[in-house]
Design a protein around this nucleic acid. Structure first.
Lengths: 159, 159
DNA sequence: TCTTGACCCTGTAGCGGCTACAGGCCCTAG
DNA sequence: CTAGGGCCTGTAGCCGCTACAGGGTCAAGA
């Protein structure tokens, strides 16, 4: 598997935990650099590629968007980042996570309340359905934009 | 705006809070029924359509996927649902929300810890970057599938 | 009556972040 | 020499919309 000048994409995938298709995708969108190729056209990766792949994976796990990761990588690549810059991105992201948590907690409360209304009866009447058919507008809107989480998380108003 | 046989799509959009394009999209994917048309081909909506639109909107706000909503609507349309069936869907959904909250809270902790390591110095060394480059695997995997939230929410292992 | 502008129509393409294929080449083990 | 796994490129699909382009329709004002 291991050529003298690098690892195959499959080996890199195993070691970094990033899917093969995803590695090629990252290359296509410019998150990963174009790698060297073997004589027969196979991609060859070195230790620096592996580190970068792990960086991207880790950042994705932490919920950074690929765009945010591009920003982080630009700083890293330029060796020009300050800790303060990085912290700012991190804190922005943290704030967004907290917004999501708050939204989901409101959601949780509403769902739990709806479920609690259910008697489990066989009749075609159900508090949940009634609540969903209720046309009153929700009182709490989701806190700002949340593009990484397309399903809305706003909440019905208190009953 | 109001024709004798129904509301225009724009009026329905305003009253239901569902975007015009989204209403047409719902029709295309079969969540909304094909409406009557005026002589000139305009869609005409009645009170039942408005109720259904509100139902879908409300359910989306509560994080139900369109597929789950289709399930709810099938029950409603058949007038054959039991409260127990609906409650089951609701509780499933509630469990998923709770998983997401738990994942996000782990995330929050890790991000906050990382940010706290930051000194704000100008030097090109940063605890956040270091942590992201750290190749150790995360200890906590995300709890099951979470397709509605594509950004991963697994978390690095405790430092 | 004509014109303007708001509305509506269909159809298609794009978003993010992948994933899954189709149809081919390459490489190694038996 | 053949079978199988790996790798290649390119394209299409997933969700839940949103944003066009390129037209038709309708009502109010000059």
């Amino acid at each position: 598997m291991k050529q003298k000048n690098g690892l195959s994409i499959g080996e890199s995938s195993k070691q970094s935990g990033v899917n093969i298709e995803t590695i090629r995708y990252y290359e296509k969108i410019g998150v990963m650099p174009v790698p060297d190729r073997s004589a027969s056209g196979y991609r060859l990766y070195g230790a620096d590629h592996l580190k970068r792949l792990s960086f991207v994976r880790r950042s994705r796990q932490l919920g950074f968007s690929l765009d945010e990761i591009r920003g982080l990588l630009r700083l890293v690549d330029g060796h020009a980042y300050t800790c303060a810059q990085v912290r700012e991105l991190t804190l922005d992201h943290l704030a967004e996570i907290r917004r999501k948590i708050a939204d989901l907690k409101r959601l949780e409360r509403v769902m739990a309340e709806m479920a609690a209304q259910c008697s489990g009866d066989r009749v075609p009447e159900c508090a949940v359905i009634d609540a969903l058919f209720d046309t009153r507008p929700p009182a709490v809107e989701p806190s700002g934009r949340q593009p990484p989480m397309p399903t809305a998380t706003s909440v019905m108003r208190r009953r």
